[in-house]
Design a protein around this nucleic acid. Structure first.
Length: 302
DNA sequence: CTCCTGGTTC
DNA sequence: GAACCTGGAG
């Protein structure tokens, strides 16, 4: 067991730099600063999984107008939900969010549960999202661990790049040790650290010149060894993959003006490789994102 | 570990 | 053109 790399005075120094920076530079996103419900926070977190916040904001606003709470979303049709998800990406998130809404409505009377164990048991909610809801919606003192916080804490405190893949035990330990003991301060700490990672302490090109932590940052002090070398995840191409084909199929279905099925003939024009097309149609059907009919025409599930 | 979307940034 | 993005599930 190694000791905390920073003493308490150094942690206080980080806080005294980070908190004022947050007060002045936090992006004014519509779900921040007490302007929405815990359910609204959850929707924003799910939409933000692997998706930049700036892209999420307009979708979130339209979504919350359609379905302000879990019960409203629970009663929506699958077709409406997939359409409203639009081009946010990873549309399975939309179905999981609706499944989550139905569970919240039925099991918890339309109110999100307050425990980590109950939250993480809900569809589409993993460690990050459960922790984020507890911290940002309920003010619970809990370490939030996402790609931004991992990178910022690893750089500032340890002076090294955060490695790819899942969060290591050491990274979790670090996040928990640095987390302020006061619950309100811990919430600001989580938000501010994440925001710094998203806007200043970015993966490839950190703007250390304007970073509030640069003068006390161990990564800067060490000369930024191995900057951007720790890939956050294995290489992911896109062109020609099933992900691209699935996206094209859903996009075609979404852009239809009438409710009639989309014929297989039309689908082959979109993606002529019929074996890959068939594979993607089957997987979309498996995921519940489309209904694949016997003649291979498709429509949104009922 | 791999799969899953699409826009932005470098 | 490739890496990256406030991940989750299998």
């Amino acid at each position: 067991m190694t000791d905390l790399p920073l003493d308490s005075a150094q942690v206080d120094e980080l806080k005294s730099r980070l908190f004022p920076w947050w007060d002045h530079h936090a992006r004014d996103l519509p779900w921040r600063f007490g302007r929405t419900t815990p359910w609204g926070i959850l929707v924003s977190e799910v939409m933000s999984q692997q998706t930049q916040m700036s892209r999420v904001a307009p979708y979130w606003t339209a979504w919350m107008r359609l379905w302000p709470d879990a019960r409203a979303l629970a009663n929506a049709s699958t077709a409406e939900v997939i359409t409203a998800w639009g081009r946010l990406g990873y549309p399975r998130r939309a179905l999981r969010l609706q499944a989550c809404a139905r569970a919240v409505n039925e099991q918890y009377g339309n109110h999100l549960p307050h425990s980590y164990e109950e939250l993480i048991a809900l569809p589409g909610i993993g460690d990050y999202t459960a922790s984020a809801v507890l911290s940002f919606a309920f003010g619970t003192r809990i370490a939030v661990i996402d790609t931004n916080i991992r990178r910022v804490l690893s750089r500032a405190a340890l002076g090294i790049e955060s490695l790819g893949g899942a969060a290591s035990a050491a990274e979790r330990k670090l996040a928990n040790e640095l987390l302020p003991h006061d619950s309100k301060e811990s919430e600001v700490w989580n938000q501010a650290t994440m925001e710094l990672g998203a806007t200043i302490c970015t993966a490839k090109n950190p703007q250390c010149e304007i970073c509030p932590l640069s003068e006390v940052c161990n990564f800067v002090a060490a000369g930024k060894p191995g900057l951007a070398e720790g890939r956050t995840r294995p290489q992911q191409h896109f062109k020609g993959t099933n992900r691209q084909v699935r996206g094209l199929i859903l996009s075609a279905l979404r852009s239809k003006t009438d409710a009639s099925p989309l014929s297989y003939q039309t689908l082959v024009k979109i993606w002529p490789n019929s074996s890959q097309l068939d594979e993607c149609l089957a997987s979309l059907d498996d995921d519940g994102l489309i209904e694949l009919m016997p003649d291979k025409a498709i429509q949104f599930p009922k």
